[in-house]
Amino acid sequence: MTASEKPNRTLFDLDLLRAMVMVADCASFTTAAARLHSTQSTISQKIRRLEEMAGHPLLVRGNRDVHPTDAGQLVLGHARQLLALNDQLLEALAGTTVAVTVRLGVPEDFVSAATTQLLGAFNREHPQVKLEVTSGLSRDLANGYDHGELDLILVKQRRNSRAAAACWPETMVWIDSARNGCIGLDPVPLVTFPPRGLYRDDIIDAIEALGRRWRISFTSSSLSGIQGAVADGMGISLLPARALSREHTVLGAEQGLPPIDTFEIALLHRATADPLVKALAVRLTGLLDQERAGTLT
C-alpha cells in the first residue's frame, strides 16, 4: 500500500487554511473576517476545526493581537504553498494570469520621482502585480501594517523599536526660517506634528533642557505643512535632513540645540510574505542604499 492509499489519511481543507493565513496576516479575527466577507464566529470555528485536524493549537490570542504558535508557523508555511498551488491550477485552467496585490505604505517625504520610477519599473517587470501604495504618517502606516492592511511599509521610528527587514539611521536637523528666524523669540514658537507624532517630544524636551519657555504655534499632520510653516516664520522644528529647503536655516550647537540621533528609517514585511512582496522590498532597499551613498541620479 502506498502512502497515498493509507486509510483515514487527513486531508486539509483549503478554506480552513485560507482562514488561518488571513488571521495570521491580519493578527486579528475581526479584520480577517471582514476581508473574507465572513463573521468572526465563523472564522473562529474554522480555526478550531483546523486545530482539531492538526492536533495542535495553531494561534494564540494576545492582549491586542493574534500570533501563531510554533505549530502554527509550520502550518502557515505549507498553507501558503498549497493556496499558491491552488491559484496556479486555477490559472492553468482559466488560461489567465493570477493577479497578486502588493500593498505598500510609505511616508510622504519618500514619495519622490525616484520612488515612483522604481514602482513603475517593478510593475512593468511583474505585470501580474496589482500595486496599491498608501502615503501617510509613520504611525498610521505601522498601525495599518499591524492590522494586516499593508504588506510592506517604510516608516520612521525610534532606533530598534521593532525588528525590520532593513534599516538606516535617520539624520535629523533643527530648522528655522531663513527670512524670519524665531529661535530668539520668547517663548520659542514650535512647529510640530500632532500629539504622539514623531519628533514632537524631542523638540519640547530639548527646549525645556535649555531653560527656555515655549509654545506650540503650528501643528500639522503633513510634512509639507510643517516645512511651509517654518519657512514662513511660524516657529522652529526638527525634521529629517532630506526635508530641508533653501527657505530654511539650520540651527544647532550655537543655539544650544543638541544633535538628535535616535531615529531610523525601517523597512518591514512579514517573514511569511509573498515572494513578490520580498522582491519589492529588495528593490526599495537598493534605492535607499543608493540614496544614503549619494549615488542616486
Rank of each mutant, 00 (worst) to 15 (best):
Pro169Gln: 05
Leu58Ala: 01
Gly233Ser: 09
Glu208His: 07
Pro275Ile: 04
Arg48Ile: 09
Arg212Val: 00
Lys46Ala: 10
Leu89Ala: 10
Ala164Lys: 07
Ser177Ala: 11
Thr295His: 00
Glu170Arg: 15
Pro258Gln: 06
Gly77Cys: 07
Gln81Tyr: 02
Val188Glu: 00
Arg212Trp: 03
Ser245Trp: 00
Val230Asp: 04
Arg212His: 13
Cys167Asn: 13
Phe122Val: 06
Thr116Asp: 01
Asp13Val: 08
Ser222Phe: 08
Lys130Thr: 12
Ile47Tyr: 01
Gly136Arg: 11
Arg9Pro: 05
Ala27Thr: 08
Ala24Phe: 00
Ser217Leu: 03
Pro258Ser: 10
Glu264Trp: 07
Asp146Arg: 15
Met20Arg: 02
Val66Thr: 15
Ala231Leu: 01
Leu36Tyr: 07
Thr134Arg: 14
Arg215Cys: 07
Ala99Asp: 01
Arg242Asn: 13
Ala27Trp: 03
Val100Asn: 00
Leu185Thr: 04
Met53Ser: 13
Gly294Phe: 04
Gln45Phe: 06
Val60His: 04
Glu52Lys: 13
Pro275Met: 05
Leu17Arg: 01
His67Asn: 10
Leu251Glu: 10
Ile260Lys: 04
Leu268His: 10
Arg49Glu: 09
Met1Trp: 12
Thr115Trp: 02
Asn86Trp: 02
Met22Val: 07
Arg283Asp: 12
Asp186Arg: 13
Asp13Asn: 15
Leu83Tyr: 01
Leu267Val: 02
Ile47Ser: 04
Gln117Pro: 00
Ala253Ser: 14
Val98Lys: 14
Leu50Gln: 08
Ser38Asn: 11
Pro240Arg: 06
Ala206Gly: 12
Ser4Asn: 08
Arg159Thr: 07
Asp202His: 04
Tyr145Ala: 10
Ile43Arg: 06
Asp13Arg: 13
Leu287Asn: 08
Pro258Leu: 07
Ala273Gln: 02
Ile260Gly: 11
Ser217Asn: 05
Pro195Trp: 01
Ala229His: 13
Ile47Gln: 06
Asp186Thr: 15
Asp65Pro: 00
Met20Val: 01
Thr272Cys: 02
His56Cys: 00
Met20Asn: 03
Ala34Ser: 09
Pro57Asp: 04
Leu118Lys: 04
Lys6Ala: 14
Gln128Cys: 09
Thr115His: 08
Ala273Trp: 02
Gly184Leu: 11
Val106Tyr: 07
Gly55Arg: 04
Asp146Gln: 15
Lys278Asn: 05
Thr115Cys: 07
Ile183Gly: 03
Ala92Gln: 14
Met22Ile: 02
Leu239Thr: 11
Pro240Phe: 03
Gln128Gly: 10
Gln117Asp: 04
Leu90Gly: 09
Asp70His: 10
Ala273Ile: 02
Ala229Asp: 14
Cys182Val: 12
Glu208Gln: 11
Ile236Lys: 06
Gly286Cys: 11
